[in-house]
């Protein structure tokens, strides 16, 4: 059956050639360049020298003593940044899920004609430049910003609370920026959900919590998966938010990579870091999806 069909359409795939070319050049091309750069030597004024070297990858994890090049120690600075990026992104995803679920539920349970308005309100922040939104957060949490001023005036605190340039600031900023990315897929999943199943759950003696756990959550799981991926991936590579709210002290992977391509003048190291980030994200995704698959298996069993 399939033979003649394929033969008959043998050349038709060529119609996809423009799209394939763009994909190849725009997506795989730069990635390939980065991969190649990570195995070259750094140039003195930035850029790369065409000379094979694993020094870039080596320096991701280790550092050499300035005076004794053979004295190798773990590069704690890089590992800290790695760990912080993963941990902050994980927390951001969790916060977005916890805040996003009730928000999406609220929207999905409104009458259909008002739902559009709520969705519209959720998407409004997307219309504003990310930088401006981040500076707005800064305005709220800086030492002489809104929160501290109000608390000082009320006499709740004597000296301003240091919120800027902490992990908290980065977390707050990222949760704020990425929340819509969790709400929208969750809403889409809830919109498709059959609310009569909720009634069926209540009818069969389930309490509200049990209905949430046994009926609603399994139904909106695809929304959670999509939302988590949409939040976690950009969070781990976030640049603007940690730069503005975290300063130099709470650097994340994105900032570290940018630093290597800028002041650091070590492009191979930057390229190796970028490749590693890709590996971390793909790895995290595989672990996440596997875990979900296992949960599903247990449910079935």
């Amino acid at each position: 059956m399939r033979g003649p069909l394929i033969r008959g359409n043998g050349w038709k795939w060529l119609l996809c050639a423009p799209a394939l070319t763009v994909l190849l050049l725009a997506a795989s091309g730069p990635l390939l360049i980065v991969l190649v750069y990570s195995f070259l030597s750094p140039g003195n004024m930035g850029g790369v020298v065409w000379e094979f070297s694993t020094e870039g990858w080596f320096r991701v994890f280790f550092r050499r003593d300035i005076f004794e090049p053979d004295l190798v120690t773990l590069n704690h600075a890089h590992l800290t940044v790695f760990w912080r990026s993963i941990w902050l992104s994980f927390q951001t995803t969790l916060i977005c899920a916890l805040l996003g679920f009730p928000t999406a539920w609220f929207i999905a349970t409104r009458p259909p004609n008002t739902r559009t308005v709520w969705l519209f309100l959720i998407t409004i922040p997307f219309w504003t430049n990310l930088l401006i939104r981040t500076f707005a957060i800064q305005e709220v949490i800086r030492n002489n910003g809104t929160i501290n001023t109000v608390l000082l005036r009320l006499g709740v605190i004597d000296s301003p609370i240091q919120m800027m340039f902490t992990d908290f600031a980065v977390l707050l900023g990222m949760a704020y920026v990425f929340l819509p990315l969790m709400v929208l897929p969750l809403y889409a999943a809830m919109d498709k959900m059959d609310f009569r199943l909720v009634e069926a759950g209540y009818d069969l003696y389930a309490s509200r919590l049990m209905v949430l756990w046994h009926v609603i959550l399994p139904q909106v799981k695809p929304g959670f998966i999509a939302g988590s991926i949409l939040v976690f991936i950009p969070a781990i590579g976030a640049y603007v938010t940690p730069r503005v709210l975290g300063g130099g002290r709470t650097m994340m992977l994105g900032n570290l990579i940018a630093l290597q391509f800028g002041q650091g003048r070590n492009w191979p190291l930057g390229a190796a870091l970028a490749m590693l980030m890709l590996i971390v994200v793909v790895g995290a995704l595989i672990v996440y999806l596997r875990a979900l698959g296992r949960m599903e298996g247990e449910r079935r069993g």
Partner: peptide, 15 residues
């Protein structure tokens, strides 16, 4: 959930 009553729904509403 606190009534000794169960329903067969028109749409069946099976999980």
């Amino acid at each position: 959930n606190r009534r000794p009553v169960n329903t067969v729904f028109q749409s069946y509403a099976l999980f």
